[in-house]
C-alpha cells in the first residue's frame, strides 16, 4: 500500500493531464501528417491511434473531477520531501500530525534547517499568493506526518471571501518566513 500511496501523492492530476496532452497531441500530429501526405501506413496508424483519443479524453474527465477536490489528506514517511525549493508555489499545506523541517539551501550549496513546524502550522501560501513564486525553501518530514494539501482554487476562494481568514494569515505569517527573516 505504501508505494501506491506514494504514487497517488502530490499533484498527480497535473501528471495525468500532461499524459492526456501527450496522447491526444501525438494523435493530432500524426493526423496532420496523415492528411497532408495521405501515406498508407500513416493512415492505418492514425486509425489505430484513435484509441489514444479515447484514453486521453477519459484521463481529462478524471483530472477534471479530481481538480474539484478542494483538500486532500496526504501521508508521508520520515525524511520525505513535501515541496522542493525552486518549484512553483501551487498548493497550501496544513499539518495535521507530525513534524516537518524547513530547509534552505545556501549559496554555497550547503543545506540548513531553518525551522520546524508541527500540527496546526501551515506553509506554501506566500508563494501561491504571489503569483506562483518559486518556493524559497524545501520542506521535508522529520517524523511520519499527515498533511492536508489545499488546492489553489479552494485557498484563493477562502482568502478572497473571508476577511477573518485573511487577517488570521496576516497575523500568523508563515512561521518559517519569520525564522528566515531572523536569519538574514
Amino acid at each position: 500500500m505504501a508505494p501506491l500511496k506514494k504514487l497517488f501523492r502530490g499533484d498527480w492530476p497535473a501528471r495525468l493531464l500532461a499524459l492526456a496532452q501527450i496522447l491526444i497531441g501525438s494523435v493530432a500530429v500524426i493526423g496532420i501528417a496523415t492528411v497532408v501526405t495521405l501515406n498508407t501506413y500513416l493512415l492505418l496508424g492514425f486509425a489505430a491511434m484513435q484509441v489514444l483519443i479515447v484514453a486521453g479524453v477519459v484521463l481529462f474527465v478524471v483530472v477534471a473531477m479530481l481538480a474539484q477536490r478542494g483538500m486532500v489528506l496526504e501521508h508521508f514517511g520520515p525524511g520525505e520531501t513535501v515541496i522542493r525549493q525552486g518549484d512553483p508555489g501551487r498548493n497550501v499545506y496544513v499539518i495535521k500530525s507530525g513534524t516537518v523541517e524547513i530547509v534552505t539551501t545556501r549559496p554555497d550549496g550547503s543545506m540548513e534547517v531553518a525551522d520546524r513546524l508541527g500540527p496546526g502550522d501551515h506553509f506554501g501560501d506566500v508563494a501561491l499568493l504571489h503569483h506562483s513564486l518559486p518556493q524559497r525553501f524545501t520542506v521535508r518530514t522529520a517524523t511520519p506526518a499527515q498533511i492536508f494539501r489545499i488546492s489553489p482554487a479552494t485557498f484563493v476562494q477562502l482568502y478572497s471571501n473571508l476577511p477573518e481568514f485573511r487577517e488570521y494569515l496576516r497575523q500568523r505569517k508563515e512561521p518559517h518566513l519569520r525564522q528566515l527573516e531572523r536569519m538574514k
Binding site: 492526456a20 491526444i24 486521453g56 479524453v57 484521463l59 481529462f60 483530472v63
Partner: peptide
C-alpha cells in the same frame, strides 16, 4: 482543456 482534450478530440 475541455476544448483541446475533450470536445475537439471527440
Amino acid at each position: 482543456h475541455l476544448l483541446g482534450l475533450c470536445i475537439f478530440p471527440l
